[in-house]
């Protein structure tokens, strides 16, 4: 008798655990809060401001998702994760999604059992050298000392690139980006290499940015995007299409300024479908009709989010480049809202 009760309890516990796993969307709705994994700080992408409010390009994705689901862009618990803990945090269910400058690679997608739902920033590895070195191309860096963050894809890319081009280099291993800056400024290495976005942010923080040049070569592909766990496609759809809604909004000319006007109805049927004034796209996602409008209302469309956080008007000052809309020669391309 006692054994049966025990087994029964075990089964229920097991079922409850599976049920908890089944629907992240339902979990988030029930919790009334989105748990979003971010990094422990990357300029422009994620950092808490003076009031302790998280700001940044990746943070904006989390806020848009929270607004789409919960109608509250502040209903997000930001959980800082490091390069070492991020995947466990997602796999164990501690966070619902990761939005933290994570490169979409084959093994992360397939072997680690995650699902990258899109790309919010196309990055690539670049190089910065002091101007006085007189170097104008990476090809001239044979025999240089390079400050390199250990345990990153940058380290591997660098080794690959120099081997392919038959050059040698002298690595100076460092642990964090801040440490790299200090080492580079102190002259411990000739070359500073990391993702081009971080390179730009770092250069902007120097006392004399003009004394340093970023070399033109980009030696790797680093598509950064939000990711979720494998096996919960409904949830993946919500995150994927929230990101797509921001991208499509820019393409369709929906901005935070004209959003209310557009919500009244437009002549463009795709805008109407996106904003939920016609069709039932929201319902298909398990959300209500104006989910996308709410996501756009938080920080504007993709282009606006870009400009506020990392665009040319910010200290980081990144150009759109690959991250422009496909209509402007970039790679940002949302599948149609139909």
């Amino acid at each position: 008798m006692k054994k049966t009760v025990f087994l029964g309890a075990l089964t229920i516990a097991g079922l409850a655990a599976t049920a908890a796993m089944a629907g992240t969307l339902d979990d988030v709705k029930a919790r009334g809060q989105l748990n979003c994994g971010v990094s422990t700080g990357v300029p422009g992408f994620e950092a808490p401001d003076a009031n302790g409010v998280w700001q940044g390009f990746d943070v904006a994705v989390c806020r848009a998702v929270a607004a789409a689901i919960l109608n509250d862009s502040t209903a997000v618990e930001f959980i800082p994760t490091t390069g070492k803990t991020r995947f466990t945090a997602l796999a164990s269910g501690e966070v619902d999604m990761l939005s933290r400058v994570t490169t979409w690679t084959f093994s992360r997608d397939v072997d680690l059992k995650f699902e990258f739902v899109g790309v919010n920033y196309y990055d690539g590895q670049g190089f910065m050298v002091p101007k006085e070195l007189g170097v104008s191309s990476v090809k001239e860096l044979d025999g240089a000392t390079v400050c390199i963050q250990t345990g990153t894809t940058t380290e591997l890319n660098l080794a690959d690139y120099f081997r392919v081009n038959g050059m040698s280099y002298d690595p100076v291993p460092v642990e964090t980006n801040a440490e790299t800056q200090t080492q580079y400024l102190a002259g411990a290495c000739d070359v500073y290499t990391t993702d081009a976005s971080a390179l730009a942010a770092t250069r902007a923080s120097f006392e004399a940015p003009g004394d340093h040049v970023v070399l033109p070569e980009i030696i790797s592909k680093e598509p950064l995007g939000p990711l979720v766990r494998h096996g919960d496609s409904e949830w993946a759809d919500v995150v994927r299409w929230t990101l797509n809604a921001l991208i499509a909004a820019e393409e369709l000319g929906v901005t935070s300024a004209n959003l209310s006007e557009m919500l009244a109805g437009t002549d463009n049927p795709e805008i109407n479908r996106l904003l939920g004034t016609s069709g039932s796209l929201g319902e298909m996602l398990g959300l209500d009709a104006d989910w996308a409008a709410r996501a756009i209302a938080v920080g504007g469309n993709y282009g606006e989010v870009f400009e506020t956080n990392i665009g040319a008007s910010t200290p980081i000052g990144l150009a759109r480049g690959l991250n422009a809309q496909w209509t402007d020669g970039g790679l940002m391309y949302s599948p149609p809202f139909r």
Binding site: T40, G41, V42, P43, G44, E46, A47, P48, D49, Q55, I79, P80, T81, T82, K84, T85, A89, T176, A178, Q181, T182, A201, T202, A204, S205, F206, E207, T314, P315, I316
Partner: peptide, 26 residues
């Protein structure tokens, strides 16, 4: 604990440095 992502003083130093206003303050 800053290595496992908790924001102790060292973790906060890093978070503060990640604001573009304060990048480079060491």
């Amino acid at each position: 604990v800053s290595i496992i992502g908790l924001s102790d003083p060292i973790g906060w130093v890093k978070l503060i440095q990640s604001n573009s206003e304060w990048t480079g303050v060491v």
